[in-house]
Design a protein around this nucleic acid. Structure first.
Lengths: 206, 206
DNA sequence: CAAAACTAATCAATCGATTGATTGATTTTT
DNA sequence: AAAAATCAATCAATCGATTGATTAGTTTTG
C-alpha cells in the first residue's frame, strides 16, 4: 500500500514552484494541485503559504551549514583548505539549485525579515570561514595580499552565475544544468576553473 | 512650474518597486500610489502592469547595449580591451542596480518568454564580445589558455554578487551600496579587484 | 474481544480581501 | 470646443485562508 504523504509532496512541489515562479508568483492552489493534495492541507501542516516557505528554507539551511567549519580544522595548507571549500561549496550549490535560487531571491528582495536574518547569518558564517582561510594564507606568506572580500565575491559569484543563469545563455554550449549528467560535467568544470583561478591568483609571484 | 509628468513618475516608481518587491510582489495600486498617479493612468499610458515592466526593461536595455562593441574596435592589446570592458560593465551595472536586479530575476524566473528572449539576446551579445577578446588574446599568445566561458562567469558573477548582495552581509564592511558615495568607492574597488584578477590569471607565466 | 471514543488526515465549499483592469464622468490643456 | 489627461467607482477573477463534514486508523473502555 502506498503512503500518500501529502506533507512531503507539498514541500517538494512548493520548492520547485517557488524556484521557477518565485514566491509571490506561486499560488497555494498551484502547490496543492502539483502536490496532488487539497488546499487546506497547506494550512493543516504548515499554517500558511509562508509556513511552507519557511519549512523549505529551514530544512535546506540545516543541511547546508556546518560542513565548511570542519574543513577549516584540517591540518593542511591554506590553499588545500581553499580547494576543499570550493569543491564542497560548488557541489552543494549545484545539487540544490532550486534552493539556491530561492535563497538568492530572498536575500535580494529582503521581504521576510526573520528569514532574511537567518539566511544572512548562515551566509556570513560561511563567508567568515573562507575569509579566515585566506587571511591565514596571506599572514603566513603563502598567499599574495589581495582584497579578500572581493575575492570571495568572485568565488561565490562565479558559482551563483553558473547555477542561476539559464544555460541557454552560453550559446554554443549544449550543456543544460537541469539535466543531471550535464550538471555533473558542469560541476567538475566549475571546480577545476575556480581552483585554477584562486591558485593562480593567490600564489605569490617568484 | 513643475510638470507632473505622471508617465515618468509611474516608470520611476515601478522600477524601484519591482526591484525591491519583485514583479508579482508589486501591485498596480502600489505603483500608482508611489507615483502619485491614479491607477487608471497605468492602463492609459502602458496598457497594463506588464506594459510598464516591458517599457522599463526596453528603455534600460537600449541604454545598456552597444557600448561594449565599440571597445572591441579599439586598436589596443586584448588585455587593455578587457580592462576597458570590465570598467565599463562594472560602472554601468553598479549605477543601475534596480534594473540589474530586475533583469536577473527575469532571467532566473523566465516567465515572460518575449522579454526573456530579448534579455538573453542582449546578454549573449555582450558575452560574445568578451569571449572574442579573450579568444584573441589566447590566440596571439598574450593570454594563458583558460576556460573562457567560466572566466566570463567569474567576471559577470563577481559584479552581480557585489551589486545584488545586501552589503550588510559583508559584516564589518560599513559600505552600503545604496548610498551614492559608498557605491562609488565600491565600484572603484571592484574594478581594481577584477582587473587585478584577470590580469594575474591571464598573463602567461614566464 | 468488540463496542465506543478519540485522533490524524483529507475533502469540497466558501470566506473576505486583493488583484489587474475598465468604465464613464470630469478636469486640464491646447 | 476639441483633445488629452485625470479621477472615483466598479468589474470579474483570483488570492490565501478557514470552515464543517468525512474517512480511516488507533485507543480506550466495558
Amino acid at each position: 500500500m502506498e503512503k500518500p504523504d501529502k506533507r512531503n509532496s507539498i514541500l517538494t512541489a512548493a520548492e520547485e514552484l517557488f524556484s521557477d515562479l518565485g514566491y509571490e508568483g506561486t499560488s497555494t492552489r498551484q502547490i496543492a494541485k502539483e502536490a496532488g493534495a487539497n488546499m487546506s492541507m497547506i494550512s493543516y501542516y504548515f499554517g500558511s503559504k509562508e509556513g511552507v516557505f519557511l519549512e523549505i528554507m529551514n530544512r535546506r539551511m540545516e543541511n547546508f551549514k556546518a560542513e565548511l567549519t570542519i574543513i577549516d580544522e584540517y591540518q593542511i595548507p591554506p590553499m588545500e583548505k581553499l580547494f576543499k571549500v570550493i569543491e564542497g561549496y560548488t557541489t552543494k550549490i549545484l545539487s540544490n539549485i532550486s534552493f539556491h535560487k530561492m535563497m538568492h531571491r530572498e536575500l535580494s528582495l529582503a521581504q521576510r525579515p526573520e528569514m532574511y536574518c537567518k539566511l544572512k547569518e548562515a551566509m556570513s558564517g560561511n563567508l567568515n570561514v573562507i575569509e579566515k582561510i585566506i587571511h591565514q594564507g596571506i599572514a603566513e606568506g603563502s598567499f599574495r595580499p589581495v582584497d579578500i572580500r572581493m575575492l570571495i565575491a568572485s568565488i561565490m559569484g562565479t558559482i551563483t552565475n553558473v547555477a542561476t543563469m539559464p544555460s541557454k545563455i552560453t550559446e554554443g554550449s549544449i550543456l543544460d544544468i537541469t539535466i543531471p549528467k550535464d550538471r555533473e560535467i558542469l560541476t567538475q568544470r566549475l571546480i577545476i576553473h575556480l581552483t585554477d583561478l584562486v591558485n593562480t591568483y593567490l600564489t605569490p609571484k617568484k
